[in-house]
Simulated scan of single mutants.
Amino acid sequence: MDWLGIGVTIIGIALFVLVILLIKPLLKLAGVLRNLQNTTSKLPEQVEELTDQVKDTLHMGNKTLHEVNKQVKELTPIFHMVGDATRAANSISASMTNAIMQVRNSKSEGNAFTSKNHLEGIYGLVTLAYFIMQYNKKHNTIDMN
């Protein structure tokens, strides 16, 4: 046997030992790749199911949003009426307060009398009743015209 034959024999034995050592890890790698193939083969079906669920959820969300918008449109006039009533009540209250303050400031004798006899609350109530009657009287004459 010459040197070339001995070298080829040593290389062959080294490759044989290498193959024997690599059999177990290569078999495990084959198993991992097989499991990966099984998992990825189910993936399109799972993605399709998820897509269908997302479509249904978005459809229900849009439907709910349309219903809420419809209900808000129905309630908007009520909100406007409440706002108008609040502004009107505020205006009336402010005008009554101004009128009461003018009468109170202009009648110093009455102020002294009410302060002396502790009749501020009654005086305010009577003044308020007077201005309510004047207000009603004023608006009734406007309605008749």
Rank of each mutant, 00 (worst) to 15 (best):
L21A: 14
I100S: 04
L65P: 00
M101R: 03
T114K: 08
H118V: 05
Y130I: 02
L119P: 01
P25N: 12
L22M: 10
V8A: 15
V72G: 01
L21F: 13
N98G: 05
G7H: 02
T86P: 01
M96Y: 14
E45C: 02
S115E: 12
T141Q: 09
L65R: 06
S91Q: 12
L65V: 02
F79E: 00
I11H: 11
I100V: 14
E49M: 09
N35T: 13
I20Q: 01
K24M: 10
M96F: 15
A94C: 00
N140G: 05
G83L: 15
E67S: 14
L18C: 01
T39Y: 08
L43P: 01
A14Y: 00
A129T: 03
A85E: 05
S91G: 07
S115D: 14
L58E: 14
E109D: 01
L128P: 01
F16H: 04
L22I: 09
L75D: 11
K24I: 12
L4R: 09
A88L: 13
N136Y: 02
E49W: 01
L18M: 13
L125S: 15
T9D: 08
G83W: 07
R87P: 12
G121V: 12
F131I: 06
T127Y: 02
I100L: 10
M96W: 07
K42F: 04
G7I: 11
I142F: 11
L29K: 07
L21R: 05
P77R: 06
I11W: 12
F79R: 06
F16Y: 12
T39W: 00
I122T: 15
F131Y: 07
Q71Y: 05
V17I: 12
T86R: 11
G61W: 05
V17W: 10
T51R: 15
I20W: 02
K63T: 14
L4E: 11
I122C: 06
G110C: 10
N145C: 06
P44G: 06
S108I: 08
I6K: 09
K137L: 11
M144D: 07
V126N: 00
V103T: 14
